[in-house]
Design a protein around this nucleic acid. Structure first.
Lengths: 358, 358
DNA sequence: CTGAAAGCGCTTACAG
DNA sequence: CTGAAAGCGCTTACAG
């Protein structure tokens, strides 16, 4: 036993006589090397790694300096095994919007950078019955440190319940508070949609129409509701005939806009609850020989890259998506309860609106 | 010692008297539980897990059935520690195109599904001098099983060299073979660009122009070169005046198209080497009061979602991006050398081209 | 403030 | 074909 132990020590020691016995660059340094080099026990090194206060300051400094010098970083796998959890954050989503996904990913990675944590992506199909079981296995198998849920799966109460039961940290990104503050990052879509109403009113539009989102999305309620309410507050009514429910897709935007633009008198402005549908409204208008914004003003929501690439550039609501990703990861990493994140989108005015004709 | 061992055994045993001593659902089952329940050593269970042939068939079947029955899945962290590598695949990219990223991610996950491997995303900034060191640390610290590199970082020879030196598996996704076959997934952009030339020729265009990509991208060479060559083969010359180098961005597309559309006689068709720039060409044309395709035909490349949302819908080259992600992951997982992947894009004809006027 | 022992859940030699 | 011992690189009790 003693023999095998010293053999092991020899293996992790430098291959040749480097002064002070420093490991060669490239060779993998372990906690044992640091302990031996620093002349302390590995437990003390462990305390330094985990920022325990139970280390004498000069011991801590010596060990820290040594770790930096040899470029030692503790093995997350070994640490994870001992801790019974990993240093991985999961991102769970069922969302067709690539731009949204990538922005949140980048935001989360902004706060994860240099933390030793990594981001593991997990798209899923929330229409499949076993998707919650799939997420559960993912979380449990990988012993995730936490999970970020994106809409619309973030709105699923059963999923949140399952995660709570597992005892894993999670943050839900949504347009409305569905959970207690530490578990939420919310974007105030309702308020932003109100700004759209105010803007159209200020331009003089009275006969406006709405392309709503699918009622299965909370954001659709917030956006459509916020718009309608703000309109009413200003004395503008939105009759049911002037509301069409789309599916957040380009094609549904085309169909809804065709219906709305056939109304007489024709609405002078349309608010589409996302940019995809607004692009569809452009298409419908063009096909009818109508010009934007001369014949009809159009506003979108999301400020996707599409918005600025359309002609004319689309006035839309900018969602601070990357910030939401940052905030979500921050709440997951927080030791103390983090301040909950509510982020308010704002109107990006471009060229798709003008006062109504005459 | 013996005492503590039996204490440990007691801890992992069922909390109450379930028949046959099966662990409770939800309690975490380990290899020791399976071994005890199956009446074999943990080493034998390990052999079954790792599909070793050195297990008697009936033993294997018994252990397999038991594992399934109690829902046992080996802990990737513990396995990783012993194996000295993890069950994680890294995806490294420095690419502004969200659609591209998400498609490749989804493709890779298609092949990773149910494999026990997970995908860890690692965007980076290839203009920063230390980005290779950053990737090296990422790979080494996480003991990645393999890495997928996306263009343009996939084209970086120093990065590939560093990965080779680390001894980690990697696959480079690019538009041209830059490495030996097992390390490459290539899309035949050159051939596809040739199809564009053929298509425009077949419509009768002789005075065509090219908005090329940035010369720092290999794909730009392939697309621009493939187009020019195919044109020449058909007796159509592309004078330097009719080539503008863009940066694969919307804005650069606007600027390039403005320059090209100012030529006299005005080109009757423009091939933009990606959809972003093609969208820019639309904008330039509209600003000049030109109609697409009546006054000028436009072709893009990528078939991004943008393409079908523009008005009129853009004729473009469809890149099989998700397939490329699938293929890349497959090559990483392959035990035997996998057949190298070359995937050829094809022309998606929509409404942005017609024969030139008169 | 510091350390020796045992353990996290698995695999690699080494024996049989 | 099967198993007991030692080890992967770290941490958790437990002592001092």
């Amino acid at each position: 036993m003693t023999a095998s132990r010293s053999k092991s020590a020899a293996r992790t020691a430098p291959a040749d006589g480097v002064e002070a016995g420093l490991p060669l660059p490239g060779s993998v340094v372990t906690i044992n090397d640091i302990a031996r080099l620093a002349g302390v026990s590995k437990k003390t090194v462990s305390r330094v790694i985990n920022a325990s206060p139970l280390v004498r300051p000069d011991t801590r400094d010596r060990v820290t300096a040594l770790m930096r010098q040899v470029g030692y970083v503790p093995d997350p796998q070994a640490r994870g095994l001992a801790f019974r959890r990993s240093f991985l954050i999961g991102m769970v989503y069922d969302n067709p919007n690539a731009q949204y996904i990538v922005h949140v990913q980048n935001g989360a990675l902004d706060t994860l950078r240099d933390s030793g944590f990594e981001l593991v992506v997990h798209p899923c199909d929330s229409r499949s019955g076993e998707f919650i079981e799939g997420v559960r296995q993912f979380v449990q198998r990988q012993k995730l440190h936490g999970v970020i849920l994106l809409p619309p799966v973030s709105e699923n109460p059963d999923l949140a319940e399952a995660l709570r039961a597992l005892g894993v940290r999670y943050v839900r990104v949504a347009s409305v508070p569905l959970d207690d503050a530490p578990h939420m990052v919310v974007s105030n879509d309702r308020e932003a949609a109100g700004e759209v109403a105010q803007y159209l009113d200020s331009l003089g539009h009275r006969n406006v129409a709405l392309i709503a989102g699918p009622s299965t999305y909370r954001s659709a309620h917030e956006r459509g509701g916020g718009f309608t309410e703000a309109l009413e507050k200003r004395g503008i009514v939105l009759p049911p005939t002037h509301v069409a429910e789309g599916g957040y897709t380009f094609e549904s935007g085309v169909a809804c806009a065709e219906r709305l633009l056939a109304l007489r008198p024709r609405p002078t402005a349309i608010f589409a609850c996302n940019d995809e549908m607004a692009a569809g409204a452009y298409k419908a208008a063009y096909r009818l020989g109508l010009k934007v914004p001369e014949d009809v003003s159009i506003v979108g929501f999301d400020d996707s890259p599409l918005a600025s690439r359309l002609w004319p550039p689309l006035t839309t609501v900018r969602l601070p998506i990357r910030d939401m990703g940052r905030q979500a990861a921050a709440q997951l990493m927080a030791t103390a309860p983090a301040p909950a994140g509510t982020l308010t989108p704002y109107l990006a005015v471009r060229d798709s609106c003008q006062p109504p004709a005459r």
